[in-house]
């Protein structure tokens, strides 16, 4: 499902959470929604899922407005840490309603996932650990097979092996049944290999919206003799630099053209990729 957002504003009383967000997300891709705490990620996803109505602007999913539009909302799933879909007695109780309310529900897949994440049907959701509860939310989201599926930091409570299992399942299921997926996460390095497109928002505004590879190409790690690195990076935007003896490694922001790359090679400098996290920190204004 294509997601089109134009001039979206969301206010909570005096606070403006989304301030004129405009973006377009292509269907059947995995999009990353990145942003700092309070940047507006949850607010944006809440509006996309019709969890709340926008204050101004337009949201269209699959070409139609979303709020109170059954034809659209029934094809959207947003899984949050709040646990609206899981906080209901036992695992069986929550599945009982998910199966009934979700038009694309895959009960067999849900059973497989329960086994994979070591959850049983008789478990009380309230008695679950944070990780188990997160895993159960993720199961509801995946087995719902909604054409637009969104996870709002819903996997953060899981431990590393469980998160890895989630990424594996998500990717395998997406490959088998392509659909539009939006992943919101703080664990940028963990999720970045999954992402085809990235949206970064900061202070309620879109800072970046582009292909993951194009975003990563905006930064370069330059390593070599300190003097050569300093000379080469003069005039460039330096994100970070590290020394080890006479060797220096610098992260620069901005694409390097062919001429610069030849100069780097001639100077004996090594050029490498930059982690998305470093670009994220730079694009969202550094430490606060």
């Amino acid at each position: 499902m294509r997601v089109e957002v134009r001039d979206l504003v969301l206010r909570y009383g005096e606070t403006t959470a989304l301030d004129g967000v405009t973006l377009s997300l292509e269907p059947n891709k995995i999009h990353g929604l990145l942003g700092r705490n309070g940047s507006g990620k949850t607010s944006l996803l809440s509006v996309l899922a019709a969890f709340r109505r926008q204050s101004a602007g337009e949201v269209r999913i699959g070409g139609e407005p979303v709020f109170e539009n059954t034809a659209v909302t029934s094809r959207i799933s947003l899984i949050r840490d709040e646990g609206e879909t899981v906080d209901l007695g036992t695992v069986d109780d929550a599945l009982f309603f998910a199966e009934w309310l979700r038009p694309d529900w895959d009960a067999k897949f849900a059973s497989e996932l329960l086994e994979r994440f070591a959850l049983t049907r008789k478990m009380s959701v309230k008695a679950m650990s944070k990780g188990q509860r997160s895993a159960f939310g993720v199961i509801i989201g995946l087995a719902g097979r909604a054409p637009l599926t969104m996870f709002d930091e819903s996997h953060l409570g899981m431990d590393v092996p469980s998160r890895q299992a989630f990424y594996d399942v998500l990717l395998a299921d997406y490959m088998a049944r392509p659909r539009t997926i939006i992943l919101s996460s703080h664990l940028i390095e963990e999720v970045s290999p999954l992402l085809e497109k990235v949206v970064i928002i900061d202070a309620g505004r879109v800072v970046v919206q582009e292909e993951t590879q194009a975003l990563l190409a905006r930064g370069t790690a330059i390593t070599g003799a300190a003097a050569s690195v300093d000379a080469f990076t003069e005039g460039l935007t330096v994100l970070d630099s590290r020394h080890l003896g006479g060797t220096k490694s610098v992260l620069v922001y901005g694409a390097l053209d062919e001429e610069r790359r030849r100069r780097a090679e001639a100077a004996g400098l090594e050029l490498g990729p930059v982690a998305m996290e470093d670009l994220f920190v730079h694009l969202t204004g550094g430490p606060r």
């Binding site: 969890f51 059954t70 029934s74 799933s77 947003l78 709040e82 609206e84 209901l88 998910a98 979700r102």
Partner: peptide
Amino acid sequence: REYLPMYIAHGQTRRQ
């Protein structure tokens, strides 16, 4: 308190 949020989170409308 329990079922309304669950319905909406499962893609149902408030009207439904």
